[in-house]
């Protein structure tokens, strides 16, 4: 258990196709515990595919490569097994599910994880206390948690709901797929606040984004540029600022 692998996310030479189209083309990335990495890239570079692959979505053809998270071969695991391990994807487009209230959904998810980890389910009153603590951080009212999951929510409300799930499930590896898109300044601050709270707990955080503005609030340790399914450049916070100023073209042309 003390191998270095136990505290790393290692993505090696990942090649992924969708219906014969090459999306990831030998992607390699490694992260240490406690680090926050940002992946930036133009449209169609494979950002969402990477997040879906990490969370275990089906429909992708993994041709070669591996993903090892803390000694576990992620590619062999179902989405729910990955969640039990502590993997969490904040969806770019969270789904609207009528007929399931947020509070019931959150409780079911929380208890599923406890059960899979061999622990007792939480009592209704303890759960309510726990979720209210998290709601306060995101300024989410009880009224909102009684609504149906994401149904008729604004873009910002949906993202805040993703953050509520994140804080509740307290994951080890969080993948934020364009969590900043469609947010106004206040919502952006509230979302960043939630991410930073998690960050302070020594977790793995992977921020996937088009723009650098979220990175003003969640300052990454590393910034990677994804282009045509590969990481073509890695740098620090400054790299994101350069892209904001000059666009991707300078880097992609060099690649």
């Amino acid at each position: 258990m003390d191998s270095i692998n136990n505290y790393r996310l290692e993505i090696k030479d990942l090649v992924v196709k969708v219906e014969d189209k090459l999306i990831l083309n030998g992607l390699t990335l490694s992260m240490n515990k406690g680090e926050t990495h940002a992946i930036m890239g133009p449209n169609g570079s494979g950002k969402s595919t990477l997040s879906n692959i990490l969370a275990g979505k089906s429909g992708y053809d993994v041709v070669s490569g591996s993903i090892n998270f803390c000694g576990n071969d992620l590619l062999l695991m179902s989405p729910e097994e990955r969640a039990v391990l502590g993997v969490f994807l904040s969806f770019q487009y969270p789904l609207e599910i009528p007929g399931i209230t947020i509070i019931n959904f959150l409780k079911t998810a929380y208890n599923s994880l406890l059960k899979a980890r061999g622990k007792d389910e939480i009592s209704a009153s303890d759960f309510l206390k726990l979720i209210r603590d998290k709601q306060r951080i995101l300024e989410i009212s009880d009224e909102m948690t009684r609504r149906n999951l994401n149904v008729s929510f604004s873009g910002g409300e949906k993202k805040r709901m993703e953050m509520l799930q994140m804080l509740l499930l307290d994951p080890y590896l969080t993948i934020l797929d364009e969590t900043d898109s469609g947010l106004d300044v206040d919502a952006l601050k509230s979302v960043s606040n939630a991410i930073n709270l998690l960050r302070s707990k020594n977790k793995f955080i992977l921020v996937i984004t088009h723009y650098q503005r979220l990175l003003n609030y969640v300052i990454p340790d590393y910034v990677h540029i994804l282009y045509k399914g590969k990481i073509i450049k890695t740098g620090n916070k400054q790299l994101a600022l350069d892209i904001e100023k000059n666009g991707y073209s300078g880097i992609t042309e060099a690649a």
Partner: peptide
């Protein structure tokens, strides 16, 4: 809806 199934499973809810 496969997307919805994935969404719930990604939160730890068994298939």
């Amino acid at each position: 809806d496969e997307e919805a199934i994935f969404y719930l499973r990604s939160r730890g809810i068994p298939e």
